[in-house]
Computed example of a mutant assay.
Amino acid sequence: MPRPKSEFEEIFPCDFYEPADLLASDAMYTVYEIARLLQGLEPDAELERDTEDILLDWAIPWIMVNADELVVAEPRSDDEPGHYGLAETTSD
């Protein structure tokens, strides 16, 4: 059920990182690492499972919206997630 804005103490702009501002050009990241980076955490920060699930709710749409600027690599094994990185840009 929607709630009135007046119920919230603070409301912030919904600004998201651009891929090039978040990811190193020479690295590949799992969705879990991207989720942490989007929150200003280190990619290997320890999180409780419930917290990680909430962060994934932000990371998955971010990856989809920015798909044109990203590349994906298949998992190296069946028990590992895929990895995402910045697509190479070319100069004209």
Rank of each mutant, 00 (worst) to 15 (best):
residue 46 E to F: 07
residue 58 W to N: 08
residue 48 E to L: 14
residue 72 V to L: 03
residue 39 Q to N: 15
residue 64 M to R: 13
residue 60 I to K: 13
residue 46 E to S: 15
residue 56 L to I: 06
residue 40 G to E: 03
residue 42 E to I: 05
residue 55 L to N: 04
residue 71 V to P: 00
residue 47 L to I: 07
residue 72 V to R: 06
residue 64 M to I: 08
residue 40 G to R: 03
residue 41 L to S: 04
residue 62 W to A: 04
residue 44 D to Q: 14
residue 54 I to V: 08
residue 47 L to T: 07
residue 53 D to A: 12
residue 67 A to Q: 15
residue 70 L to D: 01
residue 43 P to V: 03
residue 49 R to M: 14
residue 69 E to T: 08
residue 42 E to F: 10
residue 51 T to D: 12
residue 66 N to L: 02
residue 65 V to G: 05
residue 65 V to L: 14
residue 55 L to H: 07
residue 62 W to M: 04
residue 59 A to M: 02
residue 48 E to Q: 07
residue 52 E to L: 13
residue 68 D to L: 08
residue 48 E to I: 10
residue 72 V to T: 05
residue 67 A to R: 12
residue 53 D to P: 01
residue 57 D to H: 11
residue 46 E to H: 12
residue 71 V to K: 05
residue 54 I to L: 09
residue 57 D to G: 09
residue 49 R to V: 08
residue 62 W to G: 02
residue 66 N to M: 02
residue 72 V to E: 15
residue 50 D to R: 09
residue 67 A to F: 07
residue 63 I to D: 01
residue 42 E to S: 10
residue 72 V to W: 00
residue 50 D to A: 15
residue 57 D to R: 14
residue 48 E to H: 14
residue 62 W to Y: 06
residue 40 G to H: 04
residue 73 A to N: 07
residue 43 P to E: 04
residue 40 G to N: 04
residue 63 I to E: 02
residue 59 A to P: 00
residue 60 I to F: 06
residue 59 A to H: 01
residue 52 E to I: 02
residue 58 W to G: 05
residue 58 W to Q: 07
residue 72 V to C: 07
residue 67 A to Y: 07
residue 53 D to F: 08
residue 65 V to Y: 11
residue 73 A to Q: 13
residue 59 A to Y: 00
residue 71 V to M: 05
residue 64 M to F: 14
residue 63 I to P: 00
residue 46 E to T: 14
residue 51 T to A: 13
residue 68 D to N: 15
residue 60 I to W: 06
residue 60 I to T: 12
residue 45 A to G: 04
residue 43 P to R: 03
residue 67 A to H: 15
residue 47 L to C: 11
residue 40 G to A: 03
residue 73 A to D: 08
residue 44 D to K: 13
residue 40 G to K: 04
residue 39 Q to S: 09
residue 42 E to Y: 15
residue 45 A to S: 15
residue 49 R to I: 09
residue 73 A to C: 06
residue 47 L to E: 14
residue 54 I to W: 06
residue 48 E to A: 08
residue 63 I to W: 01
residue 43 P to Y: 03
residue 60 I to L: 07
residue 53 D to H: 13
residue 57 D to K: 09
residue 51 T to M: 11
residue 53 D to N: 15
residue 58 W to V: 09
residue 63 I to G: 01
residue 56 L to V: 03
residue 73 A to Y: 04
residue 64 M to V: 14
residue 67 A to E: 10
residue 63 I to K: 01
residue 65 V to H: 13
residue 54 I to N: 09
residue 60 I to R: 12
residue 46 E to N: 09
residue 65 V to Q: 11
residue 69 E to V: 08
residue 51 T to Y: 15
residue 54 I to S: 09
residue 57 D to V: 06
residue 68 D to P: 05
residue 71 V to N: 04
residue 66 N to W: 01
residue 65 V to C: 10
residue 53 D to K: 12
residue 55 L to S: 01
residue 66 N to V: 01
residue 41 L to F: 11
residue 51 T to I: 10
residue 56 L to M: 09
residue 58 W to S: 11
residue 55 L to Q: 11
residue 68 D to C: 10
residue 52 E to K: 05
residue 42 E to L: 10
residue 57 D to E: 14
residue 71 V to E: 12
residue 40 G to S: 03
residue 72 V to P: 01
